[in-house]
Every structure is written in structure tokens, then in C-alpha cells.
Simulated assay, not measured.
Amino acid sequence: MNLSSAYDGGSITVSDILKDPTFLQTRITEELDGAFVEQLLFRNGGNNAAGVVAFREAASSILADSPEDVAEFAEIPTSVLGLGELKAAFARKRALGVRISYEMLHENKLDLLSQQVAALNKTMVRDSVRTALDALNAAVGENEKAATAAWASGGSDIAKDVFDAIERVQGATVDGSPNEYFGYEPDVLLVHPVVLSKLLRDEKIIKSYVGDIAHENPIYKGLKPTQLFGLNVATSRFMPHTEAWVLEAGTVGFYSDTIPLTVTETYAERGDS
């Protein structure tokens, strides 16, 4: 990681960084902006004040009643949305920091400090990805689809696997109502960069490849200027090599913060945090 700020230049030292308590705070905040995959996958449910958020899962995509014939001057009937059972989620405070030792300061070990900060950022992103995937896996449960074969093997049909996943999302129906579709339209393919390389080397995939999509996405840095099968491609190095997620972004779930991402200023150990 290259440290840069008003102190940018060859003369920067660990002592200079400590003299400005906001130096690392600003740098880490900039690095983590747009680095969390849940901001792409889930919708923002807003803040919660007490660390608890109540929600209902959608039980239907349509109202409970159908339209009726209404006579002139008659009252227009109303209906309500079918909702699932009330559930609650509890916020957990997760945090991590790095320390600047006496030796790092007095021996000016700037490279070690840079490595620590870079590793801190990666660790926070990894934790974010794992938490998001845990939530997705808990929601999917046993309703997952195995590939025809390992994508690294010669017997795999990667194109069929992706289209099968798209079809399963599009065909999702309300429990107990096989003809009542939720109407999901998948628009994101989330994979590890290694898996994306496998995809782009497959002959059938190449035919559906659309590159150089002219767009910038401030929400998630891992979104690629690439489309496959009409899906925007997003990657994370912390994804398992054996998984690929096809979903409709902003619909699969939500996130809610009690305290939004906060990076503290540099402070003395056991001092004010």
C-alpha cells in the first residue's frame, strides 16, 4: 500500500503519521469505501437505533385479493400484501485494529506499518464477504444446485450450469402456490476471480461474453466492466473457488447498521477510543 496525503513524498516517517491522528483514519476509510460486497448484493434497510431490527420475509409478490367489478359511486375495495412471520435480527459490533510499536516509531518502520494497514483492510473485507455468504447460505438452505461437473474438468458444461441457475431464480414461486411467481430477474454473477478466468476460457461462455461495458459503479469496487449471460459480473478474492452465486441484487435481503463503518483516529494505547 502506498501511503499518501499532505505528507506525500520521500520524507514521510512514522512519526509524521502519528502527529496527524486522521492520517491513517482517512487512508483506511478511502480503501474500504466500496469494498464490501453486501452493499452490492443487499438493499440498504437504513439504520437501527437499538441494535435490533424487526422484519417480515415476503410471503407473496402480489396482494392478497384480486380486483373486483365496481359500480359507479361504489366503494373501491382494498387489499394488503401477504407477509411472512415476524422475525428479528440483532446487530453485532465487529472491530479490529493495528498497533504501532515503540520500535516502529523510533526505527521508522514505515513499510511494516503499511503492511499492517493493508492487511487490516483485507481482513475486514474478508470478514464482510464471509458474513454475507453465511447469510445467503442460511437463506438458501438445501435449495442449491450442483454443477454438472467440476468446472476444471473436461466433463463440465459451464454455460448450462449458469443458465440452470438463472432459470431457478426466474422460476422461484410462493410456497404452496406453484403458479405464483415472485418475478425475480437475476442480474449479478458473483464468483472468485479464478472462477471468472475459468468462465472466460470456456468456448460456450465466450459466445455470450460482452466486454467493455461503459459504466462505473461506486457501490462495489469488485464489479467488473463485463457481462456474461446478461449478468453483471462481480468478483471477490475471498469467495470460495467452488461456488458461483446468481441473484437479483438489492432483492435477496437487506443490511442495517446501528453504527455505520467507523475508523477511529490514531490514539494512545488504552487511551480514548
Rank of each mutant, 00 (worst) to 15 (best):
H192N: 15
A89S: 14
P218M: 06
L40K: 15
S208T: 04
T78Q: 12
P67F: 00
V37S: 02
N47R: 12
G82Q: 06
L110K: 05
P21W: 03
A152G: 11
S66P: 02
V53D: 03
S61H: 11
E38W: 14
V188D: 01
V210Q: 14
V263L: 02
V98A: 05
A91R: 04
T242S: 13
A74H: 14
P186G: 01
L18A: 04
A58S: 03
E185P: 00
Q227M: 14
L190G: 09
K93D: 10
G155V: 03
V169H: 06
V140D: 05
T235M: 04
T264W: 04
S128G: 15
V140M: 14
A150V: 09
S197I: 00
D20N: 15
G154N: 11
A268T: 10
R130H: 12
R56F: 03
E68L: 13
R99I: 12
S236P: 11
S114E: 15
V188S: 02
L63H: 02
R130K: 14
S114P: 02
A49I: 10
F23T: 03
S114A: 15
R27G: 08
A118F: 10
N48W: 01
P260S: 07
V98Y: 04
G171K: 12
Y209P: 00
K204Y: 05
G9R: 07
G154P: 01
S114G: 05
S236L: 09
G51E: 06
N44K: 14
A152L: 04
V37W: 01
V52H: 07
A172Q: 12
R99D: 09
R237L: 05
D164K: 09
S273V: 15
V80L: 01
Q25N: 12
F90L: 09
L231F: 01
S79N: 00
D187R: 02
S79E: 00
L81I: 11
D16Q: 05
A149W: 04
K93S: 09
P193Y: 03
N48K: 06
G46Q: 07
S236Q: 10
A50I: 10
G141C: 07
G141S: 05
T22M: 05
R43Y: 10
I28Q: 00
S256P: 10
S177M: 10
P186L: 02
S101M: 11
F55C: 07
D272I: 08
E68Q: 15
R270M: 08
R92M: 02
S128C: 06
L247D: 02
V140N: 05
D127S: 13
G211A: 14
T22D: 12
I28A: 04
D187A: 03
V233T: 10
M239K: 04
A6Q: 12
H215S: 13
V174Y: 01
L105G: 03
N108K: 11
A91Q: 11
V129R: 13
D111V: 15
S60I: 00
A49S: 14
G171F: 01
H215G: 08
V53C: 03
D134T: 15
R168H: 08
T123E: 08
T251Y: 06
D257N: 14
I206C: 00
A89G: 13
A50G: 08
V14M: 07
R168D: 10
S61T: 08
I205P: 02
Y181M: 07
F182T: 07
D175N: 06
F23V: 01
T258A: 09
N48S: 13
S114V: 14
E248I: 01
M239C: 04
